[in-house]
Each structure stands twice: as structure tokens, then as C-alpha cells.
Write a protein that binds this DNA or RNA. Sequence first.
DNA 1: TGCTATTTTGACAACGTTGTCATCCCGGCA
DNA 2: TGCCGGGATGACAACGTTGTCAAAATAGCA
Lengths: 330, 330
Amino acid sequence: MREVAALAGVSLKTVSRVINAEPGVSAELATRVSAAIERLDYRHNLQASSLRRVDGKSATIGVILEDIANPFSSTLHRAIENVAVKRGVLVLAGSLEEDAARERELVSAFASRRVDGLVIMPASHDHSYLLNERKAGTALVFVDRPPSFLDADTVLTDNLGGARRGIQHLLAHGHRRIAYVGDLQSIVTAALRYQGYREELDAHHLPLDPDLVRLDLRGTEPAEAETTKLLALRPAPTAIFAAQNLLTIGVFRALRRLGLHHKVALVGFDDFLLADLLDPGITVIAQDPAAMGTAAAELLFSRLDGDRSPTVHRIIPTRLIARGSGEIGP
Amino acid sequence: MREVAALAGVSLKTVSRVINAEPGVSAELATRVSAAIERLDYRHNLQASSLRRVDGKSATIGVILEDIANPFSSTLHRAIENVAVKRGVLVLAGSLEEDAARERELVSAFASRRVDGLVIMPASHDHSYLLNERKAGTALVFVDRPPSFLDADTVLTDNLGGARRGIQHLLAHGHRRIAYVGDLQSIVTAALRYQGYREELDAHHLPLDPDLVRLDLRGTEPAEAETTKLLALRPAPTAIFAAQNLLTIGVFRALRRLGLHHKVALVGFDDFLLADLLDPGITVIAQDPAAMGTAAAELLFSRLDGDRSPTVHRIIPTRLIARGSGEIGP
DNA sequence: TGCTATTTTGACAACGTTGTCATCCCGGCA
DNA sequence: TGCCGGGATGACAACGTTGTCAAAATAGCA
């Protein structure tokens, strides 16, 4: 910057004014400075700038996700990026892999870099440690899962309602023995989906058969194995509700292997690519990660713009997409 | 930091020494400082730190990808993150969407934030503008696509060899009329794959039938439409090589709609989730985005560690995964 | 013309940290 | 006892920028 000022024959401050488009610089000097910037290929140092600035904004936000490579997370990430781009804000991202310690590390690493805000899909179960960040002026928005011991803006999927909708769909097609294949109950969203299952059965005065419930499964393989066992029961379930992406795929694999994919109904929670190309197409309760990301980013930026209203809790609705597997009768 | 120093009753410099684990601080003072840091919940300001430091490292790298939500890009992104995490380096990411102007914007935004290095999957066709970044000490690695007018480290898929391998596979199964469905020829990788198709036909002394070649298609729908037209030809192709992910899906959709998915052979370039669950399973030439990301990140960090050897060009091999669709005879 | 009001410009300090160098203290040795 | 060496500690400047405020230039008006 010193070189630019020297070349343009002005003071440092005037260069700073031109860069930040502050008013009160004559047109002549402004063009001279711009030319010098161009000629020297000068790059503004945002770190030094935000160090001195009174608001200390770094024009950078942090995003903490379960796994940036998983489609749900990466779609969410992209939606956040889309909102951020419009404001010239850059996005730092990190993956958690259900590791609560990593969550704190990432928050700390982001805090060191003075991000303006954080979007968090949490893995830990105590977020009181974030109070200090907030006190330091960092905006916080939780997505997909709510915070614990901390009141903060959240954007969640309608897990309970979505699960109920799925079960209701199977009930409407005449099923009475509906198995439930679910993820780790320690994950709040998984617990809510299971609650939806129970509530919907209850609303129809149907008993809950513990034999038909398989919880705490992670990934396709356990789901495939448990499904095989479920289908060996007598009487066997006539329909299966898979409460997560990979579980749905595991269940489908088992059904196909047993030649039951046109006999046993299947509804999955969370859509996945190519679900429509399978035979039968898989009926799902689709979440909307893009809408969640957009909502989270907009919430975050409205806070950064100074919105001090009470915390907001947005629920993004789910959508039932019927593709065949959920419409098989008992 | 001033407060910490005051509370611990030491100078600023001593606090700095403790934070950076510099030698020559007595154990007693070190614990006193650590306690003060803990008590005040002090956060080190990396921006100020890297401003003053002689090497100016920000412990942050930038990654520029086609679209952080697309599985290829996000797997690559994740692999880079995995390497970066081990060094306490954070990753900024941005999406290009084939927009050359956006590429320059992102580079400039990253440069303002003084990233230590950049991994780029480029969209533009002139990278001489990056010379200045490199002069400023930013390490550069290109992935998936090579730079133009700039000599820099690259990590590429073996596009030409992979395509040849796919065509060879179809030839080995007796096919002679093999259609080619390809992406924008302005994308270097797409052009190389098409070259592989021609070379392999040529190696077998087979003529190239222009009617069987459909180029510059983007996404599933154009691929589906062109496939429909291809299959209406007389004589029709007995096999189709789809040179990209989404194109493969489009081709498969068309085959299924026409009831030809067990009659016409299909080999796709680039693997995709659930390709094995379709009927028939889709035979693909799989790229290895995780290996590419890892290689790119390791290359980048070795440069940051001071490796000044000549530029490296790594080619990541592809792998043919036979799943059924490519083994259908003519 | 002489004065004030307004705009343009620049000098300087400050942001939070680290590099440099000087000072202090202690033990060891002649 | 006096001196020296070496480790611990701190004072101060500097990194690249912007906020503050004063000075200079210009415009407006009687």
C-alpha cells in the first residue's frame, strides 16, 4: 500500500479511502490511485484491515458439518455459499464425523481466524461453551440439530412430522405390521423420527411391537443385516420404514437379495440421488437441505446486520415423494 | 492478550512465548500464564499474529472447485480437509460453475485473506494471472484439469487411458457400433476422453461414424434425448459409452424407457453412488477423487514446507468396475 | 477583498501480535 | 570477591491497515 501511495503521489490514507470507496476523494486522485493499484498488482490485506477496523469484520463465516462430502451436508454447504457469495463473504468449512471434541477444536480454530459467524450442525451435547463466542460478537445458527444448554437460532427439518407422514402413508396403504429401522438414538433427529413412528401408531391405536424396531444402526451394512432378520420373523412385517438415507439403501439391498422388493413396502426418510431409477422407485420423505442452508445463511446474515430480535426456530417442512416402493400393499 | 499479561503479572512477550510454545520460559510463569488464558477465555488472534510473523502464514488454504455440492468435488474437498486437519490448517472453499470470471474473483478473495496455498479445479483457460500470486508466495496445485499458460503442479485423472479402457472393454465384448455421448468439448477432460474413444477405435482399425457421436451435452436431459435419437438409427448402436456421470444416468434413463437396458451395453466414465443397485448394475470407469484430493493436498503442503523441485504432474489411474451393463453382448 | 463554511487531504496513533535486542538475575569460576 | 556466561524476561518497534483529527485547499458570500 505504501508503494501504491508513493506511485500515485498521495498519502496512505487516501489510498485506503479509494479502496474502501469512501466519499470525499477527488475524481482525479481516485483514478491516479486506481491506476497505481492496477500497475503494482496490489492486493488489499483483509487481515490487517479487519484488525484495525472498528467492527473487526473478516467477511468470512465458518460452517461446521457432519461430513462435507456427504450429499446432505454438501448441498447445505452450497446453499450457504450461494447466500454468502452475494455479500462477498467467504466460507470456511470443517467436518465433524460425530466427534464432539472435534466440534470444539473447529470452533476454536474458526474463532482464532475471527469469523463473523458460524453455522453449526452439532455433534456435541453441551453448547454452553459457545456463550463466550457469542459474547465476542460471533453470530451463531444451528442447522439440522438443535443446541443444548444454549439458546440460539435454529433451522431444523420437521423430523417428527415427516416420520409421522411416512408411517401414515404406509398405514393408508393397509399395512399394520410396519418395521422401523433407525439410526443412533443419541442423535436428536433420529430420536425425533422414532418418536414420530410411535406417535403415529398410537394415533391409530396400534400397539408398538418391539420385535419390529431396530435402533442404533449406522450405515448400510447393519441395516441390511437387521432387515434380513426382520423378514425372517413370523409373521413378517409387510412394510419397513427406514429412518435415514444409508439405512434405506441397506434395507433395499436386503429386500432385493431376498427377492422381496416388489412384495414388502419401503418408505425412507431423506431422499437420495437415483432413488427414482431403482426398481421399484423408492418412496421417501424428502428433506430440503438447500432450503435449510439458505434459511440458515439468511438468518446468520440478518444477525450480522444487527437484528437483535429473540431467537428464531425455523422448521423446514418435508415432502413425501411416492415412487412405488411405498405404495405396495400388504 | 494485555489482560492475560496483567493477570499473570508478566509482559506481553512472555504471554506470546507461552502461546507459541517458545523455549525459555520458566515452568512457573508458563503455568501462571496458562491459568490466566484459561480464566479469561482468551482467544489467540491469528490474523494479527500472521500479520506480524515473518513468514506471514495464515494456516488457511483455499480450494476452488466446480461445485462443492457435486459428489466428485465434495469428495475431493473432503480428502483435502483430511490432510489439512493434521496440520491445523483450515480450508476455504468456493464453487465456480464453469465461470471463468468467478475463478478470478475467488482467487482474489482468497488472496485478500492471505491463504497459504490454493487448490484449483479451473474453469478459465488462461492462468497467467496467477503468476503474481505465486510470486507472493502462494503455493498452487491444479486438480482434475491442467492450467493454461502457467507451469504448476497438477493432479489429473487418466482421462485418455480411462476412456480407451472403457472402449476396449466394449470391443472385447464384441461390439463394433459403439456410440459416444460426451460433455462440452471446451472442458479439457471431456476432450481427452473423446480423444481416447477415437484412438481406441483407430487402434482396432475401426472407422469413426460421426452419426454415433453426440458431443457438448450438459446434464441428464440432453443425454436422454440424444440417446433416444441414437437408438432410432438403423443400424442402431449396440453399445454406448457415456463420458460423464450425469450423461451416464441420462443414457440409462433412455435405455430403460425404451426397454433396452438389458439389450444395449453401457459403460460410463466416473462412478456414482448406487450404480451397483440399478438393474443391470452400471459398468464404469471409476475416477478416484479421494486419491486426487489427498495427492493435491500433499503436494501443496510439501511446497509450503519449502520443496522447490520442478513442477510435478501426477496422473491418478482409473479403474474399470464391471457390474453388468458393460458386459452385454451385441 | 476578506471572511467563514465546506471539502479534500494527510499525519499520526492504534488494532493485536511477534521479532529484536537490551536488561536482569543467577551460578560458576578464578 | 569480582567477573563472566547464559538463561529468563521485558521494552519497544513493526506488520498493513483504518479512525481521528488537524491542516490545507476550495467555494460561497457579504
